[in-house]
Design a protein around this nucleic acid. Structure first.
Lengths: 187, 187
DNA sequence: TGCATTTTTTAACAAATGTAAAATTGATTG
DNA sequence: CAATCAATTTTACATTTGTTAAAAAATGCA
């Protein structure tokens, strides 16, 4: 469970925190295409993606827009569900055969409310994701689709060949046709 | 300081937390156009906007894109600076004569590291902003500019007439000309 | 290996949005 | 109140991107 432990540690955890979290984890091996979380439900679980690739997406009027990718070491959850106990807006799909470590229900929440270091760990997790969400938004506003594609390749080099084009296109906010045109330009 | 206290309380604070935060606050009255935070600097202050309106924006190649608005009761800070101690990417400008309450340096951080309730308060703040950032991003991807404008009017009814059009346009991710066209359609 | 299915690319056209510049409206002040 | 400045709207045109459909390439499986 190397990736999971590294992720926990990267959010500023000491050994004590790792020892608090590890006993909560339940290992699950899941197939490609598995829907880990579904939008519209209250999803109370929290996952570490130990191996595999996942995308978070949202559906409306027939369209399906990916707005988040995670590879090994990422944390997967339904933000609104987990933070506010209301139905979430995102589904999370595993794009490869994956191994996850699950923390069921709100076991973490209980730790947050009783342990200072855990509360600060949870704070840092939310802060990091917030910076990431903000950066993604600014990219969307400032950069052309071609530039965003270049940055995607830089930020997620492993994913370019593991994820199908339509998902990357919707993540970048363009149609698949446009992304194909961008790739053609590069050659 | 009604708006500030309400904001603190809305993030799940009890009276103890309010009593911890209030003594840190320094009141400042600032003129329209004042730059509260500047991108590229390490900005270690944290503000409550008691009265007035502010926008966060980022500049690059001559363009200036607003990506956040705050009215009375909002918290203003440079995310990356505050969370990670590196130069931030956002500037915050006051769009009206404003009153803010400032917490200098990292006084809050110290509380986070020593008080469980404060750490959870900080966690909830980041979590709420994260949900908000995520929603903003999904709006950008899913809705037409006209729909985003309708939603803006619903979410920030007070701001429509207090903020100039160019800022709203850039917040919505369209040119000012396009926003003018959208407004013409509505009549 | 070869067939079927899925994914990606290309083409043609339509629609939406940006840019630049002019016209209009509104606000401020001497 | 007129004059000036700032903000918003409108116009004309160019460019980008989306949509739909077909072709090509890649993948999976019998």
């Amino acid at each position: 469970m190397k990736n999971t432990v590294e992720k926990i540690a990267s959010l500023g955890a000491n050994q004590k925190i790792i020892d608090l979290i590890l006993p909560l984890l339940i290992r699950e091996e899941l197939p490609k295409g598995y829907m880990l979380l579904r939008e519209g439900r209250i999803e109370r679980s929290f996952f570490f993606l130990e191996e595999g690739v996942a995308r978070a997406f949202h559906q409306a009027d027939g369209r399906d827009v990916t707005f988040w990718f995670g590879a090994e070491g990422e944390i997967l959850l339904s933000l609104k569900s987990y933070f506010s106990n209301v139905p979430g807006y995102e589904s999370i799909e595993l794009l490869e055969k994956s191994v996850v470590y699950k923390i069921p229900d709100h076991a973490l929440q209980n730790l947050y409310l009783s342990d200072l270091d855990m509360a600060n760990w949870g704070r840092r997790f939310a802060e990091f994701e917030l910076m990431r969400a903000d950066k993604r938004y600014l990219n969307q506003q400032f950069k052309t689709a071609a530039e965003r594609y270049e940055e995607f390749i830089r930020d997620y080099p492993e994913l370019v060949n593991r994820v199908q084009l339509g998902h990357i296109a919707s993540y970048l906010g363009v149609s698949q046709v446009t992304l194909s045109r961008i790739r053609a330009e590069r050659r």
